[in-house]
């Protein structure tokens, strides 16, 4: 074997090395790209919170609205009306009883992590997610599960894992498990794609 051939083989090996990960029919990059392509998103949700301090789960229902890149709106209709509206770093909470309250997300590091996480998932922002989590994707395009495990110590004190189920570009369930075992399950049913 001439040295020229050897070099060519070596180059081929190096070039092909990343292929196995990308070669699968469905990868993290594909999922993120698909998610990132959704500019607008409206869905109804049902959130169930299981907390150790309570004898029964707390249930809330309403609608979820997302507009790329950073606007997120959660309208709770039951059991009490309440609207959470996030634009940039400002969270506005309004309810008939308490009126309107504005919160700087930066003031509350954990709240900021939660928001970043949710926004990161909805917009397919892999870099933002990789900042605080280790990401693992299971399943295929038709039925996938994305597991996020916090790497940031402050976040790990509160969150054990975030589990996102979906199919294609559609997110169906976000399950957040807190460090003490409490968890919430956000089931999302997407509307007729406007």
């Amino acid at each position: 074997m001439t040295s020229g051939t050897a070099r060519r083989v070596l180059a081929a090996v190096l070039l092909l090395a990343p292929l196995p990960a990308a070669a699968g029919d469905w990868g993290l990059a594909d999922l993120m790209t698909r998610l990132g392509e959704v500019p607008r998103y409206r869905a109804t949700f049902r959130e169930t919170k299981h907390l150790a301090v309570l004898s029964e789960p707390l249930v809330q229902e309403g609608t979820l609205l997302y507009e790329a890149p950073g606007h997120l709106r959660k309208v709770v209709t039951s059991p009490h009306e309440k609207i959470y509206d996030i634009r940039g770093d400002t969270l506005t909470i309004s309810s008939p009883e308490e009126g309107v309250r504005r919160v700087d997300i930066g003031d509350h590091p954990l709240l900021r992590s939660f928001v970043t996480t949710l926004r990161g998932i909805l917009s397919g922002d892999r870099a933002a997610l990789a900042d605080s989590y280790r990401l693992r994707l299971e399943g295929g395009a038709a039925e996938w599960t994305l597991r996020l495990t916090p790497t940031d110590p402050a976040l790990r004190e509160r969150i054990r894992e975030v589990e996102v189920h979906g199919s294609g570009a559609r997110i169906e369930v976000v399950k957040t498990v807190e460090a003490d075992g409490d968890y919430s399950r956000l089931a999302i049913r997407q509307g007729d794609g406007d």
């Binding site: 309570l54 707390l58 509350h108 807190e178």
Partner: peptide, 18 residues
Amino acid sequence: RLEELRSPASAFTKDLLA
């Protein structure tokens, strides 16, 4: 307090609830 537990901020408020 119950209303706070429903909110996304429950992770902070539940520590002191008891």
